[in-house]
Simulated scan of single mutants.
Amino acid sequence: MSSLLIGVAERPLEGQPVSGDAYVAIEDAASSLICVIDGLGHGPEAARASQAAVTYIRGHAADEIEATMRALDDQLRSTRGAAVTIVRVDHVKSELQYCGVGNVTLRAFFRKPAYPVNVAGIVGKRPRRYLTTRHRMEVDDTFVVYTDGISSRWESESAPNGTPQAIASDLMARHGKAHDDLTCVVARMTNGTSPRFGRP
């Protein structure tokens, strides 16, 4: 059975005490859950929205991801709201399940092409719809989930090299925007039955 190896790079907007971005990474024997959240705006109020999402997701990690997204819309109603992407990798089926609202993006470097699509809207402000897609994953397939603190200029680049942590750190160094919070999570499917989820 496979597992995930991940790397993470994150920082707040310069001059802000906290980041409005956040992420969750949870793995059990059969699946891995990754969620990246971008609270609307910057500073403490954006962080309040993203941390409310983190708290809910940690308590409902086993739920279907679209059900989690719909519930988050209620949970964030009293906040500014957030862009949210939720990914579950099923290690039994070798399948990535994806649901995204707003401008937290996933870019996949898979043997079989995969182009997950986000729907427009803000979680907490009643998005018009939700969409869950499924994509085949194989060992060594890699994906990057990132907030708009990473410039879209990197999307013209070919598949990055190195460990997930090296890729995440490099993207932050070369393409991080000085005027925004930033979170970048890189995950690679690996062989092995023992969990290897976490920063290398």
Rank of each mutant, 00 (worst) to 15 (best):
I34C: 09
I37V: 15
G39Q: 09
G39N: 08
L40N: 00
L40A: 04
L40Q: 07
L40M: 12
L40P: 03
G41D: 08
H42A: 13
H42S: 15
H42N: 13
G43M: 02
G43R: 04
G43P: 00
G43Q: 08
G43T: 00
G43F: 02
P44K: 05
A46K: 03
A46C: 08
A46N: 07
A46Q: 06
A46M: 07
A47G: 05
R48G: 14
A49C: 05
S50V: 00
Q51L: 14
Q51S: 13
A52G: 08
A53G: 12
V54I: 04
V54A: 04
V54Y: 03
V54N: 01
V54F: 05
T55W: 08
T55A: 09
T55E: 07
Y56A: 03
Y56E: 02
Y56Q: 02
I57C: 13
R58N: 14
G59S: 10
H60D: 13
A61K: 05
A61F: 14
A62D: 03
A62M: 04
D63M: 13
E64H: 15
A67P: 03
A67Y: 06
A67M: 09
T68A: 09
M69W: 09
R70S: 12
R70A: 15
A71T: 07
A71E: 15
L72K: 01
D73L: 13
D74H: 11
D74M: 07
L76C: 07
R77W: 15
R77A: 15
S78A: 11
S78Q: 08
S78H: 11
R80F: 10
R80W: 12
R80C: 04
G81D: 01
G81I: 06
G81Q: 02
A82M: 08
A83W: 11
V84Q: 01
T85E: 10
T85Q: 07
T85K: 03
T85P: 11
I86C: 11
V87M: 07
R88W: 11
V89C: 06
D90Y: 04
H91V: 00
K93N: 09
K93M: 12
K93W: 08
K93A: 15
S94L: 12
S94E: 12
S94C: 12
S94G: 11
E95S: 15
E95F: 14
L96R: 05
L96P: 13
Q97S: 12
Q97H: 14
Y98N: 03
Y98L: 09
Y98P: 12
G100P: 13
G100N: 06
